[in-house]
Amino acid sequence: MGRLDDRVIIVTGGAAGIGRAFADGFVREGASVVLADINGEQAERSAEEIRQAGGQALGLTVDVSDQAQTETMVAETLSRFGKVTGLVNNAAIAIRVRHTRAPLEEIPLDEFDRMLAVNLKGVFLCSRAVLPHMKEQGYGKIINMSSGTFFNGRENLVHYVASKGGVIAFTRVLAREAGPSGIRVNSIAPGLTASETEEHSLEEFAVRIPNRAIKRIEVPEDLVGAGIFFMSAESDFISGQTLAVDGGVVVH
């Protein structure tokens, strides 16, 4: 018996990295998962791997910054699984997507806009798409992925950090708005996490180690326990909170 039995959870950016680790953890605990990713092929491959292992999974191509696509995502989830219990707003322009790292005045405007469109408007649109159904069922669990960079103001990433700060503000407001309908909204702020990537070596992820209480590289699996907790009934009286899961860099 798992802690997420009978729950249906959408994970945006679920094809790989942290999102995939969440999906695998949720399936282990009995959930059915929808891997919604801009890379639809990879989402379907990951979903197929989960199904091969005996789990329930659906892979979908979704650009979270496109309203019509987020609505289709929810419609397809309902058509396949009949309900949506949880949403993890994990899709983002982050370590696995190329972006400029430079002082504010060197950040291209179109890149700033795209960062906010995916990382913040994407959270807004996906939440908007699942809320009518969650409100109707009187229950729902939403996790928004923020970032430890919001707390320490990591330099040369103003577009990214601003988007992740927006996510925390969004979490707090939606928690209050949707609480009376039985919907819980929380945020997880990971540290620099060694998601699989072609561009980055493991050594690059070691730079944050000296700041941590627990001195090792963070890997996607380190976040899974917190994800399961926030998706399960165990956290039903928690809402509007941001949990830093980073080995103790930020103390929040």
Binding site: I214, E218, V224, G225, I228, L243, A244, G247, V251
Partner: peptide, 9 residues
């Protein structure tokens, strides 16, 4: 053990 990489929070 689900919270083994979370501390100080």
């Amino acid at each position: 053990s689900d919270s083994d990489f979370m501390t100080g929070q």
